[in-house]
Design a protein around this nucleic acid. Structure first.
Length: 809
DNA sequence: GGTTAGGATTCG
């Protein structure tokens, strides 16, 4: 018998033949002599029985070393095992996830999937008469909470025997619900609706759950706050609900939340991390919960009950007229009318049908308004209607979404905003999210750590490395026309530190020389080992730019002379000015520049709302100051917005000047994309007023600080000019925001460049650098298409640190 | 400790 179940409670090994010796899983290598050896570990993953082309069934499992020594490596503790034939069938029947097994009679082979699953580099193969598993089954868990013999088979308990104060929860099987009782339950989700606004005061979630009893129980959750609702992403998710009331409706038991209700949701996929999804700060979660989740996962996976199939498909599989769910990233959104919003999304795959082009009003798009041609082909237009418009209003470009029950519609002639020429384009496709919640229609933002989002991000990352994206369409000759001064000059702080770089990517490509890189087609990733021959700009502060993520315009940072002139112009404006109704005006005294010189009183405006909350320092509108005075005042107030009177009204300064001063930091707005005006800032629900909050309130499209440099690389074969910008922050280990305001961050860049390319040094003094390069096609400033290169996924390994103490002088 | 909803499409 290839699978032996040992007696309950007896540790495995008790009946394992004595002549076998155990080998720890981390010690297994491709050259291990497997005769008379065993491995012991917990089954952490059990796959399904699969029939191969030769009619032999196989089953994959993952076994994890349990008794690892503290000194042993934490890596390679889990190994894949592939079982064949009768052994696979017996194992499938007799072994569950969580069981501890001893395997013997195996052979070892190289695993082909190390990079995907991060398991042991080897795998175990078990087939034929020699292969055998010994299984020990732990005794069944105590079950004091269940009231009936029948319950014993379905109820789960979670209790802590060591601490009496820890609440003990008893979970009731879905076949034991008594009308009127308040219970705690676990269940696998077979149907769900995202929360929707009820006619009452609450949001309402509708779900249907099942468990090993195979009962399907409808649940209705009313909660005012969306965060208190179950965070369900897909059918098969597992929910744990505390304090739900069973009641009869339409001859069936349903569950409704009662006082003290709470819910936690788990991913239902066997092998995924058991991470509770909840907004609750404190919730009970212990080993038993972990076990129950794993049990429900395995039960759902083994197919004894049939869960509805998932309807999530990629854009490439979209069929006209079909309903489906889509996991995607939001790129931009734009209102079409009061009942319809356009979402531009992508998932890295290409829909076979041409997308209907939806025309939107100018300046209403949130996010980029245009994309590279390559990217455009991958973008889908989703029109969401009615109740979903409100949900769409909360979404931000960049969010990862799952949209439930989308419908693909071909050649619809009624799409709002459609051009007349397109109404004949019957082969063009649009995706509609119709109004209502039927079939779970809705939108959900997925968290970044969810496995589906991780997968999507990998797809999208791989794509941007192989294609031109809009970031690449910059004009690097701009580098030569820079003339700016920063508030603080960057200081050179000498002392070469031995410094090199490290690639942080996972590309499986061999390093090549620069001559080879130049010969290759664009759109590739290259690894190179090179020296830095020269770089631009030589004045490093000039590498800092302002970038608009909406219109992708790159701008220089205006110099202090220009800003001072704008302040001076603004302070010349005078005349009566009626303060906005929401504001209170006052005077602020600016200390004189030199000691003994008179203080100057300047007019300020504050929000009366903020003032009443005692937050008068949080936001100030300042009129008539010089740049210098503004800088001095900015040290004492969190946010200062310079304003001037124009036509009797308060207005902002020209957007060439910073619209906001926060301490030493200055923030700029995009002249193209902003519709700036002085407005009241609502601090409701805002934790802290920062540049984003102020920009949004004033209608300003905030510009980002970015770093841009051109590096001349060299190896034995050739030289090559490359850009450093998309991953420049990663490269230097500092943020561009910090570089704009912080001398230490500027010094990091300075020291790093001095180390990579010593000012007076010869080639021998320049360290060799391991770089990951991306090549792409882009237009230069004369409109010619050429191949460009940029450094990506690379970090300086020893960020230039504070130079060593020179010692006593 | 009240009310809401109680799955079930196609409109634009």
């Amino acid at each position: 018998m290839p699978v032996c179940v040992l007696s309950e409670g007896a540790g495995p090994g008790a009946q394992v033949p004595a002549h076998l010796t155990r080998i720890p899983i981390p010690h297994i290598t491709i050259s291990t002599d497997c005769s008379n050896k065993t491995v012991k570990g917990k089954v952490v993953r059990k796959g399904r029985l699969v029939s191969s082309v030769f009619d032999e069934v196989t089953l994959k499992a993952v076994i994890q070393e349990e008794d690892s020594q503290p000194s042993s490596s934490s890596q390679n503790l889990s190994i894949s095992a592939v079982l064949f034939g009768a052994l696979a069938k017996d194992f499938n029947k007799a072994v569950n996830e969580g069981d501890v097994v001893v395997a013997s009679g195996f052979t070892v082979e190289k695993s082909g999937s190390v990079h995907e699953d991060r398991l042991h580099p080897c795998k175990l193969l078990l087939s034929g008469d020699d292969a055998c598993f010994y299984v020990s089954r732990p005794p069944p868990p105590p079950d004091p909470g269940s009231r009936s013999a029948k319950g014993r088979s379905t109820a789960h308990t979670a209790e802590d025997s060591t601490k009496a104060k820890v609440p003990k929860y008893t979970y009731v099987g879905l076949d034991e619900l008594e009308p009127g009782s308040v219970v705690n339950v676990y269940g696998v989700v077979v149907f769900f609706k995202q929360p929707f606004k009820s006619r009452g005061t609450d949001f309402c979630s509708i779900l249907k759950i099942t468990d090993k009893s195979n009962q399907k129980i409808g649940c209705t959750i009313f909660r005012q706050n969306l965060e208190d609702h179950p965070k369900i992403f897909q059918i098969g998710d597992i929910v744990r609900m505390h304090r739900v009331k069973a009641q009869f409706f339409n001859n069936a038991i349903t569950l409704v939340n009662t006082f003290g209700f709470s819910v936690v949701t788990f991913d239902g996929v066997v092998g995924n991390a058991v991470e509770p999804r909840t907004s609750s700060r404190s919730f009970h979660f212990d080993q038993d919960d972990h076990r129950i989740v794993e049990e429900l996962r395995s039960w759902a996976a083994d197919g004894q009950t049939i869960l509805p199939p998932t309807s999530t498909i990629p854009l490439s599989a979209v069929q006209p007229r079909a309903y489906f769910d889509l996991t995607c990233q939001l790129l931009s959104k734009a209102p079409i009318d009061t009942t319809c919003t356009l979402l531009k999304v992508w998932d890295g795959t290409r829909c076979p049908q041409t997308m209907l082009d939806v025309i939107v009003e100018p300046n209403v798009t949130e996010g980029p308004t245009s994309f590279s041609k390559e990217k455009e082909k991958l973008i889908a237009n989703v029109l969401v209607y009615d109740n979903h418009v409100h949900v769409a209003g909360q979404l931000k470009p960049g969010d990862f979404l799952r949209i439930f029950n989308l419908r693909a519609i071909l050649g619809s002639s009624q799409v709002p905003g459609l051009t007349s020429s397109q109404s004949e384009a019957t082969d063009h496709l649009a995706l509609h999210l119709h109004g209502g919640t039927a079939y779970g229609r809705g939108i959900r933002v997925l968290p970044e750590n969810s496995p589906d989002v991780q997968k999507l991000k990998r797809t999208l990352d791989a794509l941007s490395e192989n294609n031109v994206d809009e970031f690449c369409e910059l004009n690097d000759s701009e580098l030569l026309r820079i003339s700016i001064t920063l508030p603080n000059s960057m200081e050179l702080n000498g002392e070469a530190v031995k410094c090199s770089t490290e690639r942080r990517c996972l590309h499986d490509v061999q390093p090549v020389n620069l001559a080879k890189v130049k010969q290759s087609d664009p759109g590739r990733i290259h690894h190179v080992r090179v020296q830095l021959r020269s770089y631009e700009p030589s004045r490093l502060y000039q590498s800092l730019k302002l970038y608009c993520s909406k219109c992708t315009l790159m701008e220089e940072i205006p110099d202090d002379e220009l800003i001072a002139a704008l302040f001076s112009d603004a302070s010349k404006d005078s005349g009566p000015c009626s303060p906005p109704p929401w504001s209170l005006s006052g005077q602020v005294s600016v200390p004189g520049e030199a000691q003994g010189s008179a203080n100057r009183a300047l007019t300020v405006y504050m929000s009366s709302q903020l003032l009443s909350e005692g937050k008068f320092k949080d936001l100030l509108f300042l009129m008539g100051s010089t740049l210098e005075e503004m800088c001095r005042l900015a040290t004492g107030y969190q946010n200062i917005v310079p304003v001037r009177p124009a036509g009797g009204q308060l207005t902002l300064l020209d957007l060439s000047a910073p619209f906001l001063f926060r301490g030493r930091r200055r923030y700029y707005g995009c002249k193209r994309c902003s519709e700036a005006s002085v407005k009241e800032l609502s601090a409701k629900g805002v934790e802290a007023i920062d540049q984003k909050v102020v920009a949004e309130a004033l209608g300003i499209q905030l510009l980002q600080f970015v770093l841009l440099m051109k590096l001349e690389l060299q190896d034995e074969s050739d030289t090559l000019d490359v850009l450093l910008w998309r991953d420049a922050e990663k490269f230097f280990g500092v943020t561009a925001d910090d570089v704009a305001a912080d001398q230490e961050a500027q010094s990091v860049i300075h020291r790093t460049m001095d180390t990579l390319c010593p000012p007076e040094g010869s080639a021998a003094d320049r360290p060799w650098l391991d770089l990951c390069l991306q090549s792409y096609r882009a237009e230069d400033n004369k409109g010619r298409n050429r191949t460009c290169y940029q450094i990506v996924h690379t970090s300086v390994t020893k960020p230039a640190s504070t130079p060593p103490d020179p010692g006593p002088t």
